[in-house]
Simulated scan of single mutants.
Amino acid sequence: MSEENKLSVLVVGGGGVGTIVAVNLEAGGHAKVTLVLRSNFSKVSRDGFSIRSVDHGNLNGWRPHEVVDQVPAIGFGKPGFDTVVCCTKNIQDSTPSIEELIRPAVTPGYTTVVLIQNGLNIELPLVAQFPQNVILSGVSFMGSHEPEPGIIEHDFEDKLVVGAFRNPGTSAALSNARARDFVGHYSAGGKTVCEYTADANRSRWEKLVYNATMNPICAILRTDTATLRLSDSIENLVRPAMEEIRAAASANGYNLDASIAQRMIDMDPMEIFFKPSMCMDALKGNLIEFENLVGEPLRAGKKHGVAMPVLTVIYDMCKMLQWQLKAAREGRSQEDMLKVYDSGKP
């Protein structure tokens, strides 16, 4: 395919997941990718990525079509992007918001926005900001992280489920067609499993069985999923939390299979002592994306009268952890913390 006929894609977030998304899109030959980097920009612009991938093998010095250190603005003779793919963490405690971040690159009524991010109801701010744009949901089941700037370790195969979020300002037929088109582009390289779904939120609820339980518990304890299983804490902590997510999903119209809890418990191979993404962020001193992963399903369940005592405790402990992380990042002393407490401000 000629360069001018390739899909012009902006991928925002060049960490573990976003980099593999960019690799896969370019591998298919259907897209030219501009990748937005932050802390790793200098390293990658100089040396490229060093990637060890279960799907793509070892790639040394890899770069996409272009790397940039900020979201490009359209206009002034610069062509717009066909698709903007968001692979950043979705953290409500940080600024700018994702819709503010990508706004300069989105052509109203034209650009397709793809959210390859975790959590529930993440599309609502995008629908409000871009009422005439197609918004797609991408639920990724890959395991990939960046232990050092520019070093990508992709351990679990790339599986992506894509569907359309409902945006009242766009037709359902157009949104579903764009979702199927993206699946085709992403699958073109033959290196991944990418599937279309007519119901994007079902896949999100399914992933929350893991992401609202194992993920935050490991972050709170700074431990791995194998240790959770070895410590015999599954039956009194993890499984009850997973069943609460199932109950919340059912109350919201999604009846998840009774076996899903055990599948999620067994998902990570014991021998690798896997630390989920929220745990890795906490260990690095980064803020955690707990509101959309724990808070939103908790609120969605309670809205329908679902009792969720275990998830409530997990949520409150995540709030405490986030407070600690923010205090450390801002260099607050104990004296500073007491001043914050006395002022009644978070």
Rank of each mutant, 00 (worst) to 15 (best):
Asn215Glu: 00
Ile217Gln: 04
Cys218Glu: 10
Ala219Gln: 05
Ile220Phe: 01
Ile220Tyr: 00
Leu221Gln: 09
Arg222Leu: 07
Thr223Met: 10
Thr223Ile: 11
Thr223Ser: 13
Thr223Tyr: 13
Ala226Gln: 02
Thr227Arg: 08
Leu228Gly: 06
Arg229Leu: 05
Arg229Met: 04
Leu230Tyr: 05
Ser231Asp: 14
Ser231Gln: 11
Ser233Lys: 12
Ile234Pro: 00
Glu235His: 06
Asn236Pro: 04
Asn236Phe: 12
Arg239Tyr: 14
Ala241Ile: 01
Met242Lys: 08
Glu244His: 09
Ile245Phe: 02
Arg246Phe: 01
Ala249Arg: 02
Ala249Cys: 05
Ala251Met: 04
Gly253Ser: 09
Asn255Tyr: 03
Asn255Trp: 01
Asn255Met: 05
Asp257Ser: 11
Asp257His: 00
Ala258Ile: 09
Ser259Glu: 13
Ser259Pro: 09
Ala261Pro: 12
Arg263Met: 01
Met264Ile: 14
Ile265Phe: 08
Glu271Leu: 09
Glu271His: 10
Ile272Leu: 06
Phe273Asp: 06
Phe273Leu: 15
Ser277Gln: 06
Ser277Arg: 02
Ser277Ile: 08
Met278Glu: 04
Met278Thr: 15
Cys279Glu: 13
Cys279Arg: 10
Met280Glu: 15
Ala282Glu: 14
Gly285Ile: 09
Leu287His: 15
Leu287Arg: 15
Leu287Phe: 11
Ile288Gly: 02
Ile288Phe: 10
Glu289Arg: 14
Glu289Val: 14
Phe290Asn: 08
Glu291Val: 07
Asn292His: 13
Val294Ala: 06
Val294Arg: 02
Gly295Cys: 00
Gly295Thr: 00
Glu296Asn: 07
Glu296Trp: 07
Glu296Arg: 10
Leu298Asn: 08
Ala300Pro: 07
Ala300Trp: 03
Ala300Cys: 03
Ala300Met: 13
Lys302Asn: 01
Lys303Arg: 15
Lys303Glu: 15
